[in-house]
Design a protein around this nucleic acid. Structure first.
Lengths: 351, 351
DNA sequence: CTGAAAGCGCTTACAG
DNA sequence: CTGAAAGCGCTTACAG
């Protein structure tokens, strides 16, 4: 029951055709920018479109033409800073290209659950962007049927999990390398690492960059502390590391982890950066306002999302295929949480 | 050009019909759970569906039936904790109901820009959920054509901006009231308020709850400090408030704002909670791990998102219309950032 | 319980 | 430059 009495059915191309005194195929030509339409005819059609408030039915377009101007982002997380920012970037670029953007959340890395989500995303039509920063995402990227257009946002360019699919990445390895070198240059004998969950069983790019910096400096290589994504995990890891008086520098897999580590050090009575230096990863919005403010590496997640969409767009519209490429250089942001070790420079002279 | 030689066209109901030796209408009946199908026929169809890996084409379903199992969330923001959590709740509930979820970002509150985004969302088919916590969202909710199914997530139940549309809300007023009372009970003479941008020109629910608590206690009512959504705004506001030695308690419109205030107080050499107490709003994931940890009011944003979807689902499927209702009681979480004022209880005895 | 027809709103060849 | 036909993959009455 409709209160207003009757629901106006939206105008179709036939309605427009009638109003303009042409056939509906001509209307189709006009809305598709087909060149062979007489200017006066075009103007009449355009006027009718305007008058009737006609909007082309996206569903009918999709069914008839076979292509859906839509992209679905498949992700294990929507609230963490990095993930949310990638989604944001995709949405921006998609909006600019008049694409609809859908979102599917991967609740677990379980094979059948992942397959179901991929199917759901495929049912939406259009292309897929899979954020493969974690086991669920990696599984999803691997489970996408070969005939579906997909772009992966992956952790490392070394081993694209999706086979020959296009992908984008931020240079996590370089970022971790830079942050570790920064801490070593301050005079720390070595740098401990609190790791986010790895996307695969292999060593993550962040871990690899950290290790490389240690090796090049001839510094001891402590075991990375495996943790979670949030502050709680960082807190637990920080409590453990705080017990060891030899620990003077800690690199964290992301800023949330670092926030938890900062809290743990405080609770353990170890000052930052006086006794221990801490560095994060991502440069989340709050990191500059923590006490102490957090030294971190800024990553361009939004740019990453935009690049992923651009790549997918190219595939979908069969334009020139863009080669996979990193979006932006990571940028070290030095703040209050990092400084020289307590006893001054403890590090062995460089080899 | 396809590397695998040929692209398998997905199976249609006609393919299934042929394989099962029935007409395609019968297949339609089976996939729609229509009762009048002979069990043996049903089994044959089901077997064919399984064998061919048939999935019903969502686009064709939408075009033929007129209903699209989809919801688009319209929001001004996707990265802030509250917004992201609402989106998360919608996605959870939508996934459970096999609905696709789309997202549209309102880049500005400008009338034509908002209208364009609403149109885009409408083009997707299905229902709309508009997060109307800010001017852009409120404008969008108001711009949704009457014939479109929509649910608003609004700030206050007092004046639903969408007219007679269904809506959900969290009880922000009650939450602010509780937090303010907590601070007053500790003995503060009054509580200052750093406000998030209001969704309308009228006083926000949070502001109203804060003011009500002050009035009831006969406490002075300082002017609220208008701020932004992020830590930077809180920092600026905090710097200003820190200059006034009479300020001993600050309530913030959200936890990010509180984080900035905390930083500003630190920079100004005023200890928390020794000299100034601070309380936030939302209980974001990091708030428990700040130093000092943040007293705040927990709001069930995810539940709000789920409730919004449930309401929309009811409208779309013409089930019983659920009355608008608050989702969950706000919960005060007392942590380290709030305590008695410096000189002990300064507050006048209650009237 | 099951089949044949018409139609959802478009596009894509095919005529002229 | 423009119109008439067929079809995208389904659903919805209408027959039987």
């Amino acid at each position: 029951m409709n209160v207003t009495g009757h629901t106006r059915r939206p105008a179709s191309i036939r309605d427009v055709a009638t109003a303009a005194g042409v056939s509906y195929q001509t209307v189709s030509r006009v809305i598709n920018g087909h060149p062979s339409v007489k200017p006066t005819t075009r103007d009449r059609v355009l006027a009718a479109i305007d008058e009737l408030g006609f909007r082309r039915n996206a569903t009918a377009l999709a069914l008839a033409s076979g292509r859906t101007r839509a992209v679905t982002v498949l992700t294990a997380n929507t609230t963490h800073y990095g993930y949310a920012s990638i989604l944001r970037g995709v949405e921006e670029a998609a909006r600019a290209a008049s694409y609809a953007v859908g979102i599917g959340v991967l609740e677990s890395a379980d094979e059948t659950a992942v397959a179901a989500e991929v199917q759901r995303a495929a049912d939406a039509g259009g292309g897929l962007i899979v954020i493969a920063y974690d086991p669920a995402g990696v599984a999803a990227l691997g489970a996408v049927p070969a005939e579906l257009p997909v772009v992966g946002v992956v952790e490392t360019p070394a081993s694209p999990p999706g086979g020959d699919r296009p992908w984008v990445w931020a240079d996590d390895r370089e970022a971790a390398y830079q942050a570790t070198r920064h801490l070593l240059a301050l005079g720390h004998e070595t740098v401990h690492y609190v790791a986010i969950p790895s996307s695969t069983r292999r060593t993550s790019a962040r871990t690899a960059g950290w290790r490389q910096a240690l090796r090049e400096a001839g510094a001891p290589e402590p075991r990375p502390v495996q943790s979670s994504w949030g502050p709680a995990g960082g807190h637990a890891a920080g409590l453990r590391l705080a017990k060891d008086p030899a620990v003077t520098a800690i690199l964290c897999g992301n800023d949330d982890l670092a926030l938890g580590v900062l809290r743990a050090l405080h609770e353990s009575g170890r000052s930052v950066p006086g006794e221990v230096s801490v560095a994060g990863f991502d440069d989340a919005p709050h990191s500059a306002y923590l006490t102490p403010s957090l030294t971190t590496v800024r990553l361009d997640f939004t740019g990453l999302g935009r690049a992923a969409f651009a790549l997918l767009h190219g595939v979908l519209e069969e334009a020139v295929q863009v080669a996979p490429h990193p979006v932006s250089e990571p940028e070290l942001v030095v703040r209050e949480s990092s400084g020289p070790p307590p006893g001054g420079v403890q590090r062995r002279p460089p080899a």
